[in-house]
């Protein structure tokens, strides 16, 4: 388990290093994720080696958002002044995004019927 954690931390750091040295406008962690996917696809890393720790992270992913959301405590004034407008913009753009995604997938599946 610790070795798996070290692997994930290592890929994260490697991703950061790649982003920095190549001046990529991508977060290192996203590059680390792509690296892990490539390593899984090429079978350099087997799924069972990373699965337990990855599953633990994925199950408790929400834990790591809590401290960041707590930081909103320092943003009371922004939320009081702009919160309602932010909520409205959020509702409208999220609704549009879900509608468009669902409609486009449905439409393309119908246009190009697949065997499933």
């Amino acid at each position: 388990m610790l070795l798996q954690l070290a692997g994930l931390l290592g890929l994260n750091l490697l991703g950061r290093w790649i982003a920095q040295s190549l001046h990529l406008p991508l977060p290192g962690s996203v590059i680390g994720m792509l690296l892990l996917f490539c390593l899984l696809m090429t079978r350099v890393i087997r799924l069972e080696w990373v699965e337990p720790t990855a599953a633990l992270f994925n199950r408790h992913l929400a834990f790591f958002f809590v401290p960041i959301a707590v930081g909103l405590l320092a943003y009371g004034s922004v939320i009081r002044s702009d919160g309602a407008l932010m909520l409205l913009a959020g509702v409208l753009s999220v609704t549009a995004g879900i509608a468009v995604t669902g409609a486009v997938v449905t439409w393309l599946q119908r246009a190009q019927p697949e065997e499933r």
Binding site: N12, S29, V30
Partner: peptide, 20 residues
């Protein structure tokens, strides 16, 4: 907060697993 959110990095890397 800084210590806990550091682990968001490896947590993002771990997203490759369900994707795979």
């Amino acid at each position: 907060s800084t210590i806990m959110t550091y682990f968001l990095g490896p947590a993002t890397v771990a997203l490759a697993v369900p994707f795979y």
